[in-house]
Write a protein that binds this DNA or RNA. Structure first.
Lengths: 205, 205
DNA sequence: TTGTCAAGCAAGCAATTGCTTGGTAAATTA
DNA sequence: TAATTTACCAAGCAATTGCTTGCTTGACAA
């Protein structure tokens, strides 16, 4: 038996992972790389390198590169939707509810979920139609829930218009922040969220 | 002379272009394809096909694929900046000036400049640092000019806040419209622009 | 001890990629 | 008419791509 033989120095420790979740490592690394260089600009070898694997090994966990993109994308939108629903469950008055929604959205978008959210917003269009339909369905659900929050704002007189276009414009201002936000900059996600509220909401009496 | 000989069916008319500007054809086709499939998802062969060339021919007009991206990008931002300055030269009162700026911006972003603007907004980050610096410089100039428009709005009492963040949020709402605008949909760029004005400006009188 | 399994490696294949080269027909200029 | 230039093609090269295959290793179970 060749148990002790090491044919060459390249054979590294196979049990390098104390934490068992290598699949999670892959989607986190993929998220970061897709964010940095785009889906098509990132190779399987990039991802494998980032988690100290050889280029064929990710295919043990995912059946294709596309499936990695799909997993990263849905991870992003799922967390956002869950967060939103948790905030709404608090049953605050309209204005406070809206502010909390925006803060939560931005905290994830600019914080721990940066990569996932980015990939969802900007790379999911590269999925094939079937997969994209799933993602689209989930973001439609997000918008639907968000829409109800806006409706209550109109009812309470804090917002003039909750039409589909107004909704898209507000969500646009929020989502675009991922483009310019600088985590070393002066303002944090919460401050930006509050600025947005001040921009679109009526002045408090 | 072999004027009339056609050695094989593949030899197509070499002088197929009545309009001489094949370079322009390439950047328009590249813009469209970069918009559809992203920079890295588009091959030189895709671009060449779109303008009825063979895969090596675009390199007669551009020294690299990167240079095509750079050209498409700067085309986008240059036009937008020129448009903005033309609007401002009209010297309208603050509110009318702002509305005109937004309408002009959106008319280009969602109309004839769709592809160029999109590439500028979403693909220019794939340029190398030197080229990206040029693009960044031009968009900074755009924001600077736009900022002056916002300052006048604050002075006239039509806007509460013209801070850097407020500016980014407003421009974000505008630019994000490229993501969801449907040219077959109910509302046109001008209507969307007016909705945005209604959203961020104080009510008249 | 023996067998099974999760996890990953080493090697490489077929296709695709950006780009180069040498040539050529037509238009333009001298 | 002769020389040059413009614009392009045909062919292909070297590198990279996503992915497959057969095998190894350590952990655990019977």
């Amino acid at each position: 038996m060749e148990v002790l033989s090491k044919p060459d120095g390249a054979s590294v420790a196979t049990t390098a992972a104390p934490d068992a979740n290598r699949r999670g490592d892959i989607i986190r690394a993929a998220g970061r790389l897709f964010h940095q260089k785009g889906y098509n600009g990132t190779t399987i070898r990039d991802i494998a390198d980032a988690v100290n694997m050889r280029s064929g090994s990710p295919f043990y966990h995912f059946k294709s590169k596309h499936e990695i993109l799909f997993t990263v994308t849905t991870e992003g939108i799922e967390v956002m939707l869950r967060n939103l629903e948790m905030v709404i469950a608090r049953q605050q008055p309209p204005r406070a509810c809206f502010e909390a929604c925006v803060i939560t959205h931005m905290n994830y978008l600019l914080g721990p979920g940066r990569d996932f959210a980015w990939v969802m917003l900007y790379e999911s269009r590269l999925l094939d139609p079937t997969e994209r339909a799933v993602v689209h369905c989930m973001s439609a659900r997000y918008e639907e829930v968000f829409s109800a929050v806006l409706d209550r704002l109109v009812a309470s007189g804090d917002l003039r218009d909750a039409s589909a276009i107004a909704r898209k414009l507000i969500l646009g201002a929020i989502n675009w922040s991922a483009q310019w936000y600088d985590e070393n900059g002066a303002s944090d996600p919460q401050a930006i969220a509050q600025q947005l509220c001040a921009l679109v909401l009526r002045e408090k009496n």
